[in-house]
Structure formats: structure tokens, C-alpha cells
């Protein structure tokens, strides 16, 4: 996708469009931030000012700072950061068009970009949100469904290892509904995971087809 970045990815979830770029492992710029036993992972999530119908102020909002941390923590268990001590891995997630589920699309794109950069990771991370609208559980909610629904539960996981790296819940779900939502989300994540792998493979197979 992006030539200057070490790895990059573009992901669409319906109307939500996200681009992710990864740089590194590289030298840590404020020297005091470096860790002697592993790489630090820095993440910046940003919504571009034209990504919403009302212009969004380009200054980083409270929400963006929080989501940067959420995305970073969703990726950290997957990345083998102890392979590169005293370095930094920078992840940039830019939302081009927002229609709900930007954090899940962001995590999906960021994981792809990290893999594309050749950074060792135990598994790809895929994410999707489950919502509850009029008592019905639905997968991959958009902005309208999120605003008028009763609950919204974003979930990120490493399907190959069957491990959850991020789980949030906004609203109310009964314990039974929660279990249903979890299985529904995992089903969706597995589909996204397959698409991620296909996309990674395609970048190399396409080159192969050019010369034959």
C-alpha cells in the first residue's frame, strides 16, 4: 500500500475505511523511553477531519488517545517484542471514513500492517463488534446500529491460538446473551482472519503471476 512504510494495510468494513502503517523496529527517539528487554510499541489512532459528516477537529481528542491505547494493547500480546530490545515499533491507524466499528477495523488493519512489515508475531489479530438491537444480537454494527442499539461489544482475538486480546462492552447484556455474543463474534473473527491471510498471500502471488 504505502511505499515509505515498512508495512501497511487498507481495510474496509462496509462504509468504514481505515489505513494502517507500521514503521520499525527502529531506534527509539526520545532515548529515555526505550526498554532494555524488549521493543516498545507506540500506536496512534486518528480520525481524519473529513471522515465524519460534521468536520472533526484535527486535534487529538480524548477519545482518540484512549483508542490508541486500546489498539496498542490489543496488538501487544501478538507481537514478539522481546526479539528487538531497545527499539520502537510505531503503528499509525488513520480512519478515512467512519461509520461505526473504527476500532475493530483499526485493529484488523494494524495487525495486517505489522505482519506486512515482517515483524514476528504469534498470530494475526482480527476484531469485530457485536451489538444488540431490539433484543436481537447482530454482528459488525455500524454507526446507526450503535447509536440506537442497547449494547455494543467490540472483541479482538487471535483465532489461531484461540485467545482474546481485547474485549469491551457498552450497554447491558444478560450473561446468556453475553455468551451468545461471544460465539457470534468469534465466528465473525474467524471469517475476517481468513480474509487477512488471503490478502497477505495475494501480495506475493500477484507478483508471481506478472512474470508467467
Amino acid at each position: 500500500m504505502l511505499k515509505n512504510a515498512d508495512g501497511s494495510a487498507y481495510v474496509e468494513f462496509g462504509n468504514t475505511k481505515v489505513i494502517a502503517a507500521v514503521y520499525g523496529p527502529r531506534e527509539v527517539v526520545p532515548r529515555h523511553e526505550e526498554l532494555t528487554d524488549r521493543a516498545i510499541i507506540r500506536c496512534r489512532y486518528r480520525m481524519l477531519s473529513f471522515s465524519t459528516s460534521d468536520r472533526k477537529s484535527p486535534a487529538p481528542s480524548r477519545r482518540e488517545i484512549e483508542l490508541s491505547k486500546v489498539i496498542r494493547e490489543a496488538l501487544e500480546p501478538a507481537i514478539l517484542s522481546h526479539y528487538y530490545p531497545r527499539t520502537a515499533i510505531d503503528v499509525f491507524v488513520e480512519v478515512l471514513n467512519a461509520d461505526g466499528g473504527t476500532r475493530t477495523a483499526g485493529i484488523t488493519a494494524a495487525a495486517l500492517a505489522v505482519a506486512d512489515a515482517g515483524i514476528p508475531m504469534v498470530d494475526l489479530v482480527a476484531a469485530v463488534a457485536v451489538g444488540k438491537i431490539d433484543g436481537v444480537l447482530v454482528l459488525d454494527v455500524n454507526e446507526l446500529e450503535d447509536m440506537f442499539g442497547e449494547a455494543d461489544m467490540p472483541l479482538a482475538a487471535m483465532p489461531g491460538l484461540n485467545k482474546i486480546t481485547m474485549l469491551q462492552l457498552n450497554g447491558v447484556l444478560t450473561p446468556q446473551e453475553f455468551k451468545q455474543a461471544l460465539t457470534l463474534a468469534m465466528k465473525g473473527i474467524k471469517q475476517i482472519y481468513e480474509l487477512q491471510k488471503e490478502a497477505l498471500r495475494r501480495t506475493y502471488v500477484e507478483i508471481g503471476e506478472q512474470i508467467v
Binding site: A115, D116, G118, P120
Partner: peptide
């Protein structure tokens, strides 16, 4: 080139 992580009895590929 250290592309595989050996965890318990699994051999997990870590890079493309």
C-alpha cells in the same frame, strides 16, 4: 532465520 516459535508442542510461524 528464526521464523518459527516453538511453544509446547506447536511450531508457530511468526513472519511472512
Amino acid at each position: 532465520h528464526n521464523c518459527v516459535l516453538k511453544e509446547k508442542d506447536l511450531n508457530i510461524v511468526t513472519v511472512v
